[in-house]
Amino acid sequence: MKKLLAILMALSVLFSFAACNSGGEETTAAEETTVATPENPTIRMSTTTSVNDSGLLPFIFPVFEQKTGYKVEVQSAGTGAAIQKAKDGNADLILVHSKASEEEFVNEGYGVERIPFMFNYFVVVGPKDDPAEIKDSENAAAAFSKIAAAESKFVSRGDDSGTHKAELKIWGENTPDGETDTWYISAGQGMGACLTMANEQGAYCLTDKATFLSNKDSLPELDIILEESEDMKNTYSVIECNPEKLDGINTDGAKALIDWLLSEEADSLIAKYGEEEYGQALFTVIAE
């Protein structure tokens, strides 16, 4: 009986060696694609609607997820709500575009470090015949004062979002008051809803280019009237949530995702996004 067992064991050892040798090359190849799942595989990212609506994230994240075994859960809301959710401990990192709010987030101890990693330009869209004649303005501020002088309709996000804050910065001291300036429509809604409203009302609107291009089919009245002026630069940053201030943060996951976003692989993916669909890149990577 003992003999039989010994033989069986010897045989099984032999077989397993044989299996290893014959499949050696295949296993190393397989290791590259199926990585061991990390201890806490879920990364919660809180981001703004404009990032989410642009379609960039579903374009780049599958590469990261396949490579690392992490799963990124993206929650999108206006910048204000996106940051508030993170402050409430419901996110591991944030990806937003509002410098002042981001710095506040870090200074209050909720965020570890603000890392700007890509940018694009806001554009001013408006009725094709450009009633306020802003087409040749040198920058957005000049265009806005022409709109105000002509009292042409203008749809504002009015929701404390990154885009709304950028708009208010361009208006500066001349921010219209919707109560008296009835041409200034403060909609308090998302980018898509505001563009639809501008299309309906024959109004101007400040928007990120990606959202406008992806909705262009349903906005027949609107065209990009002004673009690429320095005061319309729109910088996106990632911030890791501070595990010392907040409980239950997936620090390893957040770090891994940020490292990857700054990697050359992510850079080339971001730079490529939009070319196929819109014939132009929608984001530019900030070189370190």
Partner: peptide, 23 residues
């Protein structure tokens, strides 16, 4: 359209403040 000073009502104002993060 939730337009300020025009068509904003209590419910849409609540929705807006929620989106702003002012819970």
């Amino acid at each position: 359209g939730n337009i300020q000073w025009k068509t904003r009502v209590m419910t849409t104002a609540i929705l807006l403040e929620t989106n702003k993060g002012k819970f």
